[in-house]
Design a protein around this nucleic acid. Structure first.
Lengths: 348, 348
DNA sequence: TTTTGAAATGTAATCGATTTCATTATACAA
DNA sequence: TTGTATAATGAAATCGATTACATTTCAAAA
């Protein structure tokens, strides 16, 4: 385990000051090209590597962005991460990923840790069980930019990247209604979170606009994991629904699988509509109708806005105003929600 | 944007030295409980937050582990990450995730960056196009522990967490043979990587053991993404195979979908065997036979071994010997590879 | 009361790079 | 040759926490 080579070692070896070394390695025009070359050569020869911890301490930055995710196991999450990474790599930032596993307590602990690590900015999607948002105030007080995406805090004024969940929920439900489905069951998650609440409102509005009475017995919230979804589905089937609108493709796929196992035909007997456009949906039979959710684009947008805020902050300009971006989502109609006979009839 | 509160501010406010403050906040028994309480209270009151960058510089550590992944978009990758995270969270380490997108060049750049960030250890799965492994030598020279998992460098002596890919490939192929399939096509990825090479060897050995001549025309390497897989499958179909052994569940699902679209029945006409046990496989029809790949366990093991190495290193004991762990994988026989008629016959 | 050892606190160096504010070298004009 | 502007380099402070080593405090023993 050799000792690290520092700029002091380089300075000694070349009989120069650390100031010159530092400047040379930073490509500063203040040092003579010939000197710079000498320093470069010696740095290579001695195997010098910059100590970013020391650099960051001095520069009062970390060139790191914290990403606080509710979960990482979905296609949506990895898409968002890919989008964030694309931008941050280009802008030479690192990302520190923390995930809360949908647990508000862990979200708080993670937020605290990222703050202590002095991340230059934060990208957040709230956990399912988060209620208060006090844990972000240290960031606001220090003027460290925070961008929320997807799962945002409704009341708080902040930077937000979202889709129009109300509209998406409305359109998905309206589509099912147009296909002739009437008793549309809705499986979703905690209504505390904007995304689920908005979609639910969209669902109810679409029903109302089609003169259908909303039946509370046709709606259930759960964690959307396999077991909970199956349990909830089982319960809802007693209400004799003719369609399911499920706010998650994985849960929708689980339902479809179980329905088919019970001999129920999709979409003839029961129509299914998912949400998120997970790859999964294009590989199951019948192909799942869903709402395309541009994860990569959300990630890119969030990262770009965050980095812009970080940069303008450095230039001293305060940027108090909050950006709010709505990314377009689109209804993706495939097979699980399109009644074939009805379709055929309409063509004849 | 207020100024950060430092231990100097606390020291001044309480008329104590920074040494005492630092010790108190670290729960050192060297400071009187009463003093500690006072310090704690003042820290809370003034909103003190530890600056981990300064702390890490002084302590010559980062309490961060670098994770270098070939990709992050698979169920396997997220499982591994979950496993790593479980351990690191418990041991109070952060993880810095870098992914190479299967590109060797990016892997080199990422490795360099993680080194400069002074990660305390590194967990790696090699990219598809990586050839040399010189980029890891700075870690070895500095005695920074590195653990490879899954995609490891065969020739290099190092810490490795793998499954027995040869055995898994053998068993998967043998199972298909037992089911009566004879012309088994093999779709895999770059044979440069141990995992694919070993599985391929297992495949060939199983064929040989069943007195079946290996036909090179039945084997193709590709990136395993949708388009490439479909192209390769199309080509292989000309060789009239009666089964596919595909080293990736996603690619297998894509194939199954396309085969069924062409009216080919699975498993009656063609049997399909995947690899990795992606959730996907349990949601498609017929359910995909595959090899269960314990990602979470691999992640946990890799993280635990790495942290142990970091700890023993701190205690001064050099740990030159390399750990090599083989995690058990299991053949998961579902529907896509089991000939129903044959099955029935054997029961009658 | 003095001694003594442990307990508590303090002083200052340290981690490694950056950067402000000098200072020295160099080139060109007068 | 001298003066002067500019280019190049250096000395030392700085970022904030930790910690080796020194010093003070205090209670119990002598």
């Amino acid at each position: 385990m050799e000792k690290q080579v520092t700029i002091y070692d380089l300075a000694r070896a070349l009989n120069l000051s650390t100031a010159t070394i530092s400047r040379a390695l930073d490509d500063s025009p203040l040092v003579k090209p010939k000197t710079r070359e000498k320093i470069r050569a010696m740095a290579d020869k001695m195997g010098y590597r910059q100590n970013l911890i020391a650099s960051n301490l001095r520069k009062q930055q970390s060139r790191t962005i914290g990403v606080l995710l509710h979960e990482v196991n979905s296609y949506f999450s990895t898409s968002v991460l890919a989008g964030i990474e694309k931008i941050t790599t280009h802008e030479k930032y690192d990302i520190l990923i923390a995930h809360s596993g949908e647990d508000g307590e862990r979200e708080i602990a993670n937020t605290r840790n990222l703050f202590n690590k002095r991340v230059d900015g934060l990208i957040v999607s709230l956990a399912m069980t988060t209620v208060a948002t006090d844990h972000f105030t240290p960031f606001f007080e220090q003027g460290i930019p925070v961008v929320f995406f997807d799962r945002v805090a409704k009341k708080m004024p902040c930077n937000k990247i979202v889709i129009d969940n109300f509209k998406a929920g409305y359109e998905a439900t309206a589509h099912l209604l147009q296909q002739g489905y009437r008793r549309i069951a809705h499986i979703t998650a905690s209504l505390q979170r904007n995304v689920y609440e908005d979609r639910f409102r969209g669902y109810k509005k679409a029903l109302a606009d089609h003169n259908i009475h909303f039946d509370p017995l046709l709606m259930e919230s759960c964690s959307l994991n396999r077991e909970d979804t199956l349990a909830v589905m089982d319960q809802l089937l007693e209400q004799k629904p003719d369609a399911f609108f499920i706010t998650n493709d994985f849960a929708a796929a689980v339902c479809m699988d179980e329905l088919q196992r019970r001999g129920i035909r999709i979409p003839e007997d029961i129509g299914v509509m998912g949400f998120n456009n997970d790859i999964l949906g294009s590989l199951i039979n019948p192909r799942l109708s869903t709402v395309d959710y541009p994860g990569t684009q959300m990630g890119e947008t969030a990262a770009q806005i965050l980095i812009d805020k970080i940069k303008t902050k450095k230039n001293g300009k305060a940027t108090a105003e909050h950006k709010s971006v709505i990314i377009p989502s689109t209804l993706l109609i495939r097979e699980s929600s399109v009644k074939k006979d009805r379709h055929r009839r309409s063509h004849k």
